[in-house]
């Protein structure tokens, strides 16, 4: 098993390298750069100054030099300066947004876990009950509805018509602090959090139901019941412990799904996170920012998959990887 974990970590390194190549390569494929658009729009700019600017930004260097410059400074957390936001550093821009996306992701993951796991367990213990049918129907709907459409309906109903929750932003006013700021933040995250977590909730509910059903049908559960163990102990000591294993490992893969979903969900709610920053940078061809976010998201996903794989090999030692 340790051998497997070490090998798995070693595979991580070339994957990381490939990721940087892809991100860099995609940005290079772009026709023109942030400067060419501007100079074409403004005929008053002296071509000589424009050329100096290109030289200063390193846009005239050969490609491998540009790649090396980018990757070696990126390793130190320096992704250069944004081409759009008055040359603010990319790291500064990302730092301001990253926490927001992290809070939103954790909040929606919490909703997913709190809703999906108990309902999944109940559905499995009382299959074909009303609640089970309701949950199955909800599962189908949750996977079929585009999350931006769900978000718009949520805004229309709960924000515009009922006025229960704010429809955008993270804080009502920048002045609040302490506990008020915390509750205000949560209040702002309710609608986007539910929207972002919808598909995950539907998925995990189905997984949980089938896992618990599987375990309930196994021999050791029958033995536990036969020796007179209470229903409650069978559920908590035997069933859940075994049913939760695959669910926990799946969470590692969930990171990518959440981050991807955040791009669209944040746009619907005008939530100032990494997703909205990524979208506006893509629109403005602000490639230093696009590259940095794509790289960070890619690394997070690689790490998530790595953790999921390692967890899996730890909880299920039967798996052999040779």
């Amino acid at each position: 098993m340790y051998k497997y974990i070490i090998r798995r970590i070693l595979v991580f390194i070339p994957m990381l390298f490939a990721l940087t190549i892809i991100v860099f390569g995609l940005a290079q494929l772009a026709p023109g750069d942030a400067l060419s658009g501007k100079s074409l729009a403004d005929p008053n700019v002296d071509p000589e100054i424009y050329e100096q600017q290109r030289e200063a930004l390193g846009l005239n260097d050969p490609i491998y030099v540009q790649y090396w410059n980018w990757i070696s400074s990126a390793a130190q957390g320096d992704f250069g300066n944004s081409l759009i936001f008055n040359g603010r550093s990319v790291m500064e821009l990302i730092e301001a947004r990253f926490a927001n996306t992290l809070y939103l992701g954790l909040f929606s993951l919490a909703i997913t876990i709190i809703v999906a796991i108990p309902i999944g367990i109940y559905s499995a213990r009382k299959p074909y009950s009303m609640l089970d049918y309701g949950a199955t129907g909800f599962g189908f709907l949750g996977l079929a509805i585009p999350n931006f459409f769900f978000g718009l309906i949520a805004i229309y109903v709960f924000s515009i018509n009922l006025g229960w929750f704010p429809s955008q932003g993270t804080l009502s006013s920048p002045g609040v602090s302490g506990f008020d700021a915390f509750t205000d933040r949560i209040h702002h995250m309710v609608l986007p959090g539910i929207t972002l977590g919808l598909a995950g909730t539907a998925t995990y509910m189905r997984y949980m139901r089938s896992e618990v059903l599987d375990v309930l049908g196994s021999d050791y559960i029958r033995t536990a019941k036969a020796k007179g163990m209470s229903e409650r102990n069978v559920l908590y000591k035997h069933t859940l412990r075994n049913a939760l294993i695959p669910i926990i490992t799946l969470m590692g893969f969930e990171i990518g799904v959440l981050l991807s979903g955040a791009v669209i969900t944040e746009q619907v709610f005008q939530y100032p996170g990494l997703g909205t920053l990524f979208l506006s940078s893509v629109m403005n061809r602000d490639f230093p920012v696009v590259m940095a976010i794509a790289l960070i998201l890619g690394i997070l996903i690689l790490i998530g998959n790595l953790i999921a794989d390692i967890l899996y090999s730890i909880v299920d030692p039967r798996i052999r990887y040779d």
Binding site: M15, A18, V257, S260, F278, V282, L297, G298, I301
Partner: peptide
């Protein structure tokens, strides 16, 4: 295939879309 799956689908597609006029 592994490399393609490294980036979230949406991020990959959006980055490509940014390149295309």
């Amino acid at each position: 295939a592994d490399i393609m799956l490294m980036l979230p689908f949406l991020v990959l597609v959006l980055t490509i879309m940014a390149v295309i006029d």
